[in-house]
Write a protein that binds this DNA or RNA. Sequence first.
DNA 1: GCAAATTAATGATTTATTCAAG
DNA 2: CTTGAATAAATCATTAATTTGC
Lengths: 179, 179
Amino acid sequence: MDERLPGFCIKGSGNNNNGSSGTKCGRWNPTTEQVRVLTELFRSGLRTPSTDQIQKISTQLSFYGKIESKNVFYWFQNHKARERQKRRKVSIDENDFISRDNINNKISSSKRFFEVMEYQSDQRVMETLQLFPLNSFDENEQEKLRFHANECREDSLFPYIINNSEMDLPPLDLRLSSV
Amino acid sequence: MDERLPGFCIKGSGNNNNGSSGTKCGRWNPTTEQVRVLTELFRSGLRTPSTDQIQKISTQLSFYGKIESKNVFYWFQNHKARERQKRRKVSIDENDFISRDNINNKISSSKRFFEVMEYQSDQRVMETLQLFPLNSFDENEQEKLRFHANECREDSLFPYIINNSEMDLPPLDLRLSSV
DNA sequence: GCAAATTAATGATTTATTCAAG
DNA sequence: CTTGAATAAATCATTAATTTGC
């Protein structure tokens, strides 16, 4: 019963030999305050703290709970990388096929879609990074945007509003059946 | 049970004078089928549809009733945020304020550690774009890091200390020298 | 049974971040 | 260092559920 339950770790004897393999059990679990401080530091511009800074941070944060210097180091590494990854992901991947070819355009993102849409001519299915299962849609189509301010407020602040009132629709085909 | 589909903007001047500076339009009231399809798409992994997708979804869903693209956009925004919110509330169990033994014991040898770490993973922080998991909710990884970094509990005897942000910790002054 | 009053859900806006380009 | 792009968080506002008194 005291086996290593997945996701729940038995009290692995104080000194966790958190080596390289069994990171499950001896992993640092930051407290709220620790995360708060780290995030504040990150937000303040700190990205790659020096060793001295890491030590100071770690010492300070140890007040809130168990922490080691390496945790601080890793935290910044991961946070930096993941923020970046997140940005890239939403900017490029979320946009399915549209392009990576003309990445110089960089506007493959749907947001600038209104402005540069007419330029899309050749989209290649780049690196099989197919994120959405619902690509039963025909992304290849270049639909016309009818930016019709149908609302009371004409200045729309959200990035993309397309008013498409096509009413002649066959029964729904949105299933993520195939690609 | 009132089957009247919500119209567009009720442009009737002075009709619904809610006085406040809010919207003056009646808001979208999704039909059951619309919600069902949107939820299915969400559960399939779609989180931030591109403009193309939004338009197609909107077009498809208009078969079931009045809808605009912006409604689809808003729906995904809200649904994503609220699912995350829900999950976050559930996982407010993080604070194990554990005063472990010799917290920063490894600092003395941390320099070597950091050198190795730098060598290992400094610039090579995974550039891999993870494919979208078809059946999992891609929650914010940061939150996972923050709240689920470790399921390991030493003991459940420690009292929670959740909002002790007013400890007597001196204000961190870490960014002093090398910023 | 039925509406007025109240509460819960959720659609729509605003605000505060992030990274990256210039 | 400043600005652009694009959210995601926080908030506002309205609709639906429900409670309640009659």
